[in-house]
Amino acid sequence: MAKTKLNAQREHRIEMEIVVDAYTEEERALSWHCYLDEQLSFPFKASVRKAMDSSPLPTGEHVLVTGLAHEDLCRVGIFVWVRWGERDVVAPLAQIDPLNGDKATRVAVADWHYWRDQGYAF
């Protein structure tokens, strides 16, 4: 995937507020999980921005995001619980675009998308 254009403000927030003092993969994963747990307000409506091998959700599908997955699952990526039709499934946050939600939720999801789109990893 092509990197997105560097965003100095977002880079600073990620480095100084989210992963500051996180030196290992596990620490960075936990830092991201804690940040998102504090910032995301559930539930919020979302669309699926791209299909991913780790999820059954197709591009363009509308879902209701109902919660952040347990931190143990989020050691390899950030996952959220979504209501998809009659099912509750776990999906990568990288796959989800909020359609509504408060500003903090939209900014936090955009931060995660930016991090992933830049090719950064835990």
Rank of each mutant, 00 (worst) to 15 (best):
residue 95 Q to K: 00
residue 80 V to C: 07
residue 109 V to R: 11
residue 100 N to D: 15
residue 117 D to A: 15
residue 103 K to H: 11
residue 85 G to I: 00
residue 110 A to E: 09
residue 109 V to G: 06
residue 98 P to C: 09
residue 104 A to F: 07
residue 118 Q to G: 03
residue 108 A to E: 14
residue 106 R to K: 14
residue 103 K to V: 13
residue 92 P to R: 14
residue 117 D to W: 11
residue 94 A to R: 15
residue 114 Y to I: 03
residue 100 N to L: 06
residue 85 G to P: 00
residue 117 D to Y: 07
residue 97 D to G: 00
residue 92 P to D: 12
residue 90 V to I: 11
residue 104 A to E: 15
residue 91 A to F: 04
residue 85 G to F: 00
residue 83 R to S: 06
residue 116 R to S: 10
residue 102 D to R: 15
residue 92 P to H: 14
residue 112 W to Q: 02
residue 95 Q to R: 02
residue 109 V to P: 13
residue 107 V to A: 07
residue 103 K to A: 12
residue 104 A to D: 13
residue 95 Q to L: 01
residue 116 R to P: 01
residue 96 I to E: 04
residue 105 T to K: 13
residue 94 A to S: 12
residue 89 V to C: 03
residue 99 L to D: 13
residue 118 Q to D: 06
residue 104 A to Q: 15
residue 111 D to Y: 05
residue 117 D to N: 12
residue 91 A to W: 03
residue 99 L to K: 07
residue 98 P to K: 08
residue 91 A to T: 12
residue 105 T to E: 14
residue 115 W to R: 06
residue 108 A to Q: 11
residue 98 P to S: 09
residue 106 R to G: 00
residue 96 I to Q: 01
residue 94 A to F: 05
residue 118 Q to T: 06
residue 114 Y to L: 02
residue 117 D to M: 07
residue 116 R to L: 08
residue 99 L to W: 08
residue 84 W to A: 10
residue 88 D to S: 08
residue 111 D to N: 09
residue 80 V to W: 02
residue 92 P to S: 14
residue 110 A to N: 14
residue 105 T to M: 12
residue 117 D to L: 11
residue 88 D to Y: 11
residue 91 A to S: 15
residue 93 L to Y: 07
residue 101 G to I: 15
residue 112 W to S: 02
residue 87 R to I: 03
residue 89 V to F: 08
residue 80 V to D: 11
residue 91 A to G: 03
residue 81 W to Y: 15
residue 94 A to E: 11
residue 86 E to Q: 05
residue 94 A to I: 01
residue 100 N to G: 11
residue 106 R to N: 10
residue 96 I to P: 04
residue 81 W to P: 00
residue 114 Y to F: 11
